[in-house]
Simulated scan of single mutants.
Amino acid sequence: MSMESPEHEAAPSPPRNRTKETIRAIKWRLGLVLFALVAIPVLLLPRRLAVGLGARGGRLVFLLMGKLRRKTVAHIESAYPYLGTLEEWDPAAGTPEEIARRTFANIGRTAVEIIKLYFGQGKGLVDRTELRGLEHVRAAKARGKGVIFITGHCDNWELVAHAFGTNAEGMAVVARRQKFEPLTRLLERLRNRHGNSIIYSEGAARQIFFRLRKNAAIGLLMDQSVPFHEGELVEFLGRKAWTTTMPALMAARTGAALVPGFGHREGDRHVVEFFPEIAPDPSGDPIATTRLLNRAIEQYIARHPDQWLWVYNRWKRVTREQQG
């Protein structure tokens, strides 16, 4: 029996916090029920038809969810002037609203494909995915220091990992645990396949270091906002964003190669393209190296603007004063 005095006992959560947690848990459970209901027709339909309906569903969400639509368009509008300065940008990509509409269609396609993958119907998707630039991966592996793949929430990022694990040698993907534990377990079942594995971001540095020492491959989605104590403010699409500097720090410490790799759609199939490794900034400054890594993601977005996850607020938690 504990002999702690009352003042050392854990204080009960405030009622408001408990109410928020309850509401969040209900939302997640409703989301899982919706996932199951949507999954049934998706699994019964042929792949091409299901993916086509997914695109229509995404466009319908674009029309019906005004708040999310406006937020997405605003994100594109804020980056639009900067995108226009990049060599890879094609003005024919259209207006921010046109890009947003196609983005929602791509999210709908991706959702359908993930359902197919999760329930074991993704072989056709993986087999039809082409890997380009593997010579850059082989050159990086030949150095024997490990490889850190720099990528983002582009195209169908789950399929990218599956295709690499199936047709190459697999990787350990760095991910965050979901706030709703059943969703974490659901994603684990999807990601721990085809030679891939997960490293959770909490305390990930030691595992990453250990694997790189064995010349393994690590996949890291760098386009997520991190808490201020986990990263630095680094420019991204013309504005400062909280960005992880872990890849830059790990490359400096271990000599691992930093190799960009992204997926994109070509017609009804996917292409995963790898690019030459990015040399760390000569100054050794991790922020300068991280800026180079962000630029690789920006170049991808400029080439395929409707296949990045614009609905996500990449610049959250950055104040006006910090933006300067």
Rank of each mutant, 00 (worst) to 15 (best):
A100F: 04
R101W: 14
R101I: 08
R102T: 08
T103I: 05
T103L: 05
T103W: 00
F104M: 10
F104V: 06
A105V: 08
A105C: 05
N106S: 01
I107R: 05
G108L: 04
G108T: 01
T110G: 08
A111T: 13
A111N: 07
V112Y: 03
V112C: 00
I114A: 04
I114T: 12
I115A: 13
I115Q: 03
K116W: 07
K116M: 15
F119W: 09
F119H: 14
G120V: 13
Q121K: 15
K123S: 14
K123I: 11
L125Q: 00
V126H: 09
D127P: 02
T129D: 05
T129E: 06
T129V: 05
L131F: 11
R132H: 13
R132Y: 05
G133P: 02
L134G: 02
E135W: 00
E135A: 12
H136P: 10
H136V: 04
R138I: 02
A140E: 11
A142H: 10
R143D: 06
G144N: 03
K145M: 06
G146H: 06
I148A: 08
I148Q: 06
F149N: 05
G152I: 05
C154Q: 04
C154T: 14
D155N: 14
D155Y: 02
N156F: 03
N156M: 11
W157Q: 11
W157F: 15
E158N: 05
L159W: 03
L159C: 04
L159R: 01
V160G: 02
A161R: 02
A161T: 03
H162D: 06
A163C: 06
F164R: 04
G165C: 08
T166P: 04
N167H: 15
N167S: 11
A168Q: 12
E169M: 05
E169F: 03
E169H: 09
E169T: 10
G170E: 08
G170L: 06
G170C: 08
M171I: 00
M171R: 05
A172F: 07
V174F: 01
V174P: 00
V174L: 07
A175S: 11
A175N: 03
R177K: 14
Q178L: 02
F180N: 09
F180L: 02
L183T: 05
L183H: 09
L186T: 06
L187F: 15
E188R: 13
E188N: 15
E188K: 11
R189H: 15
R189K: 15
R189P: 04
R191L: 07
N192Q: 12
H194D: 12
H194A: 08
G195F: 12
N196T: 07
S197Y: 10
I198Y: 12
I199R: 06
I199A: 00
I199W: 00
Y200G: 14
E202P: 00
E202C: 01
E202I: 01
E202T: 07
A204F: 03
A204D: 01
A204H: 01
A205E: 11
R206S: 07
R206D: 09
Q207I: 11
F210Y: 04
L212I: 09
